[in-house]
């Protein structure tokens, strides 16, 4: 039986293969950012923030409004990041804080509620027409020849942005006092208070950072997809996969997981027989891989079980 392939095999067209890898790394860097956001919150509160993607969606819509109002792209992004951070902090202080000492399940339910709330709110404000919107790139759609592949400047731009943000997070957590305090809070909140750390502030700061990082992911991918209240849903699913793949307690692992998932998604979408595994099978296949990883290594590829001597 003959299968229908959309693309020639890699050895017949290396350029296409290279383009798919770079495009995969680019979308992967978005998954990496959103996964990083998930990990930032998971590490400090042991909670998966299901509303992470919706928070990013909301800030992306806000930025879209600002763009329509005529603000230049980079101004919009800077305001947007600030807005995202403020929203994250506000949500932590008003909605998450009251249930923080309850069971992890209550917090999960709260983030699910936030998901619905933010989604409806965005639909009511920006999506009455029901028409997806296009989002401009702060970079450019001009293509760049890398020698082995031709990709757009936007792809390169998001790749570099993701790497820079990851680098900044690394520096923050490993070389600053506030980063040390945030790690300590994630590790042992009671002992942290005895050290004089304002644990509440650290949690708020964690949510602010996560929302800002996730928001950057949202605004950068909106140009590649489209902007609608549900546009972050597949992104967040891939980001979950990335975070779990890399290890939920490992920021570096989440980023590596993001790149891996992005490349895998692109290759699966391009090189599988379309009549068997069409593009709509990309997500289930990626999630299948995730299940396999978890069966073999439950803490994720880069996660580690807590160091403890008994």
């Amino acid at each position: 039986m003959l299968h229908v392939f959309l693309a020639p095999a890699p050895w017949e067209n290396w350029d296409l293969f290279g383009e798919q890898i770079v495009a995969g790394l680019a979308t992967g860097s978005i998954y990496a950012l959103v996964a990083l956001a998930l990990v930032l919150i998971y590490r400090s509160t042991d909670v998966i923030n299901f509303a992470q993607g919706e928070m990013a969606m909301f800030t992306t819509f806000a930025m879209w409004s600002l763009t329509l109002a005529g603000f230049p792209a980079w101004t919009v992004i800077i305001i947007g990041i600030g807005l995202a951070g403020a929203m994250g902090g506000f949500i932590e202080m008003t909605i998450v804080r009251p249930v923080e000492n309850k069971s992890a399940l209550s917090v999960v339910v709260v983030t699910l509620g936030l998901f619905v709330l933010i989604n409806s709110l965005a639909s009511a404000i920006w999506f009455k027409s029901g028409e997806p919107k296009t989002f401009p790139t702060p970079f450019s759609d001009a293509s760049v020849d890398l020698g082995f592949a031709r990709v757009t400047q936007h792809h390169i731009g998001i790749l570099i942005t993701a790497l820079v943000i990851t680098g900044l997070m690394y520096l923050l957590f490993n070389y600053t006092k506030v980063g040390l305090a945030m790690r300590a809070t994630a590790h042992n909140p009671v002992a942290s208070r005895l050290m004089g750390i304002r644990v509440g502030w650290m949690l708020t700061l964690g949510w602010m950072l996560a929302a800002a990082v996730g928001g950057v992911g949202g605004v950068l991918i909106a140009h590649l997809t489209y902007l609608a209240p549900y546009f972050m849903l597949p992104v967040v699913l891939y980001a979950f996969a990335a975070a779990v793949l890399g290890g939920l307690d490992s920021p570096g692992g989440a980023v590596a997981g993001g790149f891996a998932v992005g490349v895998m998604e692109n290759l699966l979408g391009t090189y599988t027989p379309q009549d068997v595994f069409g593009p709509e099978m990309k997500l289930p296949l990626t999630l299948l891989l995730l299940v396999i990883v978890l069966l073999v290594k439950p803490s994720g590829l880069f996660g580690h079980a807590e160091t403890r001597r008994v």
Binding site: K177, L180, A181, R183, A184, H187, N188, V190, A191, S192, R193, L194, M195, G196, I197, R198, V199, E306, T307, R308
Partner: peptide, 30 residues
């Protein structure tokens, strides 16, 4: 507690409550 520490009281709790995933140096800095 965080304001009592800065007044000059240090509590070394039961079970030590170290930051076990962090280095000796990081524990001291905290």
């Amino acid at each position: 507690p965080e304001s009592i520490v800065s007044m000059g009281i240090s509590h070394i709790p039961e079970g030590r409550q170290l930051f076990t995933d962090m280095t000796v140096m990081e524990n001291l800095m905290l």
